[in-house]
Design a protein around this nucleic acid. Structure first.
Length: 721
DNA sequence: ATCACAATACTTTTT
DNA sequence: GTATTGTGAT
């Protein structure tokens, strides 16, 4: 049976378990995704399940794609019939199909974080609450937490002042979502659960339709997701879940690793299988990981073991500041690459917060080395991208008031605050959304709004309404990419965004990037495109093609593995993060996050911290992370940052400054010089200038084109001139 | 109505 | 130090 080839006895036991509730508790690097994939294939091949009868839930879209292709390889055919994706994506699909009878239509849009916040602000305003006294973010977090726990507005505990406020905002917020014909992320789960709870026929239909359900990363499911699983799998569940409570890192998003315990209570007949052998890391890495996680009270210890041998020691390094930290990374990777110990693509740099990527990017840029940055948020969060998405969403769903308000006067078209206010009031009076009012005006239905709009403003709005109606029309037949073309042309968006400055050009390039993404999106349907945009995960942006180091947050690193790992910012306040200091559970989660980070490593691990670190512009001295003290000294080499005294640190700082003052005071290179670079080959210097303590050289390389390099980081060999 | 500049919070992690 | 919001001038 080739489906079981290369699997160890525990893995085989899991793959071939009898249908029914199965809980696989798997340590890091134990091949749990592999088990899941083989189980999928086993269901089809051995238990003759039809692929359409399988629903598999993964944590990211990328994981879903990977599982599809791996399972397809195993089966020697297409697995596309399997319903595979994240909880959110699967729920969105179900809701679009079954929207009849619900208070929204199947063209609903999904609101992202920023839209949700805008709605909370709006709710606060209509309730006459000052956003300065009631923080919208806090209220939104509370609402989201409630939704993840399946708590309806009426049931929201209003025992405190904040609770009372939140409850009222929650009510209002839900109504606003409906009037926008929009759902937020939590709604996707909430409405699906509601629908299945209340509609027995539908529930039975889905239970029959998906007799087999598999779930990856089960420790990161929340109450709503767990309830959903229970609803979908009764009365005779074939539910196969895989997870590791030690790797639970999404508590702040409502995830509850106690779902693992709940599972065993709710399904007492569940078969429980442990996967303990690790195929990823050296024993040194595993020993360090265990030392970190074993400090966690109240957990079931497990022994991680491998037959890979001890491997190299973990390197500890203390840098002076974040620029120095980044430079250490770049230099170390450069030297590992130069000696052939690792490929650039084998290396990965992890950090606690996204903001920490900036100094890294600068260092890589200065050294003229490419890198891969994981983070979709940042692209889709850009103003110009949000604008165009708002246009698309409005076309898909004219009731989307948040998107309408965003782009009504973007680019400026003579509809200022006053005009917008009039429009909103007219919509309120007519009992329809402002988008519909515009469409009415475009059709010439002035009667109903007679005397409401002044001549100029009325004309502007009718004009925009006609545009909107026109786009609405062509959207039915045109692929998304061409629709975007039309939008840009009709609105003069390029002229608006690209003002010739460097920033303007960059913004326009982003627009082109979105356009490319739309072209690549084969399905062509607007709804599907918008859904994908709303539900992209960070990891979805990881390109496999480039052989370059990867930069990502520790959260985004979940489920991945790399030969060489750097974990940066091991300073109190950064990692563990400041916000977790008062809350024991939050601190426990930080520790698990560190555990996740360490266990991504196959061979070499570098733990780095800074002596001083800038926050809010001013920099201050930091203390080493408490986690560093938990790594046994016999596993490490390099400094003992955890035990360094302040005097030693300040002495180091002194010597640092001395060495920096030896930096060039006049250029070492001249324009016209012929140079050679180890990576880019030969080229001619175009320009050179001094930048603080460094010299920046612009070189036109024969093969690689123009590059800007830092003289101190890149070894340029002068050939002539 | 629009733009330029200034003051002001603000940074955890993400579907 | 930066993104966002608010204010005042055009």
């Amino acid at each position: 049976m080739d489906l079981l080839e290369g699997l160890n006895p525990q893995q085989r036991q899991a793959v071939t378990a009898a249908p029914g509730p199965v809980l696989v508790l798997a340590g890091p690097g134990s091949g749990k995704t592999r088990v899941l994939t083989h189980r999928l294939a086993y269901l089809v091949r051995q238990l003759t399940a039809h692929p359409t009868e399988i629903m598999a839930v993964t944590f990211t879209n990328k994981a879903a794609r990977e599982m599809t292709s791996r399972a397809a390889t195993l089966l020697g055919g297409s697995m596309s019939a399997v319903s595979l994706g994240t909880f959110h994506a699967l729920c969105a699909r179900l809701l679009r199909r079954e929207a009849d009878g619900l208070p929204f239509t199947r063209t609903f849009v999904i609101f992202d974080e920023a839209d949700q916040l805008a709605l909370v602000r709006q709710a606060l305003k209509t309730l006459d609450l000052d956003p300065r006294q009631v923080q919208p973010g806090k209220v939104h977090a509370a609402i989201s937490a409630a939704k993840n726990e399946l708590v309806e507005p009426e049931a929201f505990p209003a025992s405190t002042y904040f609770g009372e406020i939140t409850r009222r905002v929650y009510e209002r917020y839900q109504r606003l979502l409906i009037s926008n014909n929009a759902l937020d992320f939590d709604d996707l789960l909430l409405w699906t659960v509601r629908l299945l709870r209340e509609n027995a026929d539908l529930r039975a239909r889905y239970q029959r339709h998906y007799p087999h359900i598999l779930v990856d990363e089960f420790q990161d499911t929340n109450t709503a997701q767990y309830e959903l699983l229970r609803l979908l799998t009764a009365p005779q569940p074939d539910l196969f879940v895989v997870g590791d409570p030690d790797q639970s890192i999404y508590r702040w998003r409502g995830a509850d690793y106690r779902n693992v315990l709940r599972f065993q209570e709710d399904f007492p007949t569940a078969e429980v299988i442990l996967l303990e052998q690790n195929y990823r890391s050296t024993q040194t890495i595993l020993d360090a990981a265990m030392a970190v996680i074993d400090r966690q009270p109240g957990r079931h210890r497990k022994q991680l073991f491998t037959d890979r041998g001890r491997g190299l020691r973990i390197v500890l390094h203390e840098a002076y500041d974040e620029a120095d930290e980044a430079q250490f990374v770049v230099e170390t990777i450069a030297s590992l690459t130069a000696t052939g110990e690792a490929d650039p693509g084998d290396c990965t740099v992890m950090y606690r917060t996204n903001a920490q990527s900036r100094p890294l990017e600068e260092a890589f840029f200065k050294a003229g080395l490419p890198y891969r940055l994981v983070g979709a948020q940042r692209f889709y969060g850009r103003r110009e991208i949000k604008d165009l998405i708002a246009y698309l969403r409005l076309i898909q769903n004219p009731d989307d008031q948040v998107s309408l308000l965003r782009i009504l006067n973007t680019p400026p078209r003579g509809m200022g605050d006053k005009t917008i206010q009039v429009l909103l009031e007219a919509a309120e009076r007519a009992g329809i959304s402002p988008g519909r009012v515009l469409l009415d005006l475009a059709r010439g239905d002035q009667a109903e709004y007679a005397g409401v709009f002044g001549g100029r403003a009325g004309a502007a709005m009718a004009g925009f309404g006609r545009n909107l109606a026109g786009w609405f029309e062509i959207a039915q037949s045109l692929p998304v990419a061409e629709l975007i073309d039309r939008l840009i042309r009709d609105t003069g968006y390029q002229a608006y965004i690209d003002d010739g400055t460097e920033e303007g050009t960059e913004r326009w390039e982003n627009v082109e990037e979105l356009h490319r993404a739309a072209i690549d999106f084969s399905e062509g349907a607007l709804t599907a495109f918008l859904e994908q945009v709303a539900l992209v995960s960070d990891q979805d942006t990881l390109s496999e093609s480039l052989d370059a180091p990867t930069l990502l947050t520790l959260h985004a690193a979940k489920g991945l593995e790399f030969p060489v790992v750097f974990i940066l910012g091991l300073d109190e306040g950064v990692f563990p993060h400041q916000r977790s200091f008062e809350d024991k559970e939050a601190m426990a989660e930080e520790r698990r996050l560190f555990y996740v980070g360490i266990t991504r490593t196959q061979d070499r691990l570098f733990l780095v911290r800074c002596f001083r670190r800038a926050q809010y512009g001013t920099s201050g001295v930091t203390d080493p992370s408490r986690f560093l003290q938990d790594i046994p000294a016999d596993l490490t080499e390099g400094g003992q940052p955890g035990r360094q005294t302040r005097e030693q640190a300040s002495f180091e700082r002194q010597t640092r400054w001395d060495s920096l003052s030896a930096a060039p005071s006049e250029p070492r290179y001249r324009a016209g010089m012929r140079v050679r670079h180890p990576t880019f080959g030969e080229g001619v210097i175009q320009e050179t200038r001094l930048d603080r303590d460094d010299e920046i050289v612009t070189v036109e390389f024969e093969a690689a084109g123009p590059k800007r390099l830092s003289a101190s980081l890149s070894r340029l060999e002068v050939l002539e001139g």
